[in-house]
Design a protein around this nucleic acid. Structure first.
Length: 122
DNA sequence: TTGCTGACCGACG
DNA sequence: CCGTCGGCCAGCA
């Protein structure tokens, strides 16, 4: 269990990639799922480094606790994240996810019986 | 090497 | 009710 793939960043990447299309989650939910509830900031920091990864990481599906598109500026433009979400059927108003509660994808619940080992392959 | 910053969250007054 | 502060951990100057 001491591989680079086990690093906090890669764990975040795995969870983010598991987010279904048309759904959103929060930094804190991911951090809490990984066991580090207090390091929600690291999740966002991992997203910043996600650009370094070749894999397609739907970072636009990750918003803050209030459903605000806080990281939209990091997508190369102020409207990129919004349009990406809208293209998935997610309604955005005032840089905020509409029906955020309904669209909220909680890894603690959704991945409770769905271990990360599934995605660890390859 | 040390220290600050950061796409957050929860607690406290 | 709303504003403020601390904490978590990794990357970077």
């Amino acid at each position: 269990m001491s591989s680079d793939s086990d690093s906090f960043f890669y764990k975040v990447y795995d969870v983010v990639r598991l987010i279904p299309e048309g759904r959103v989650t929060s930094y804190g939910a991911i951090a809490e799922y990984l066991g580090t509830r207090g390091s929600a900031r690291m999740v966002g920091w991992a997203m910043n480094a996600s650009h370094h990864e070749t894999w397609n990481i739907p970072a636009h599906r990750v918003v803050n606790r209030m459903g605000l598109l806080t990281g939209k500026q990091h997508f190369g433009g102020p409207n990129v994240m919004k349009q990406l979400l809208e293209s998935e059927g997610i309604e955005i108003a005032n840089d905020k996810v509409v029906n955020f509660v309904e669209l909220f994808w909680d890894p603690r619940t959704e991945l409770r019986d769905y271990a990360l080992r599934v995605t660890r392959n390859a």
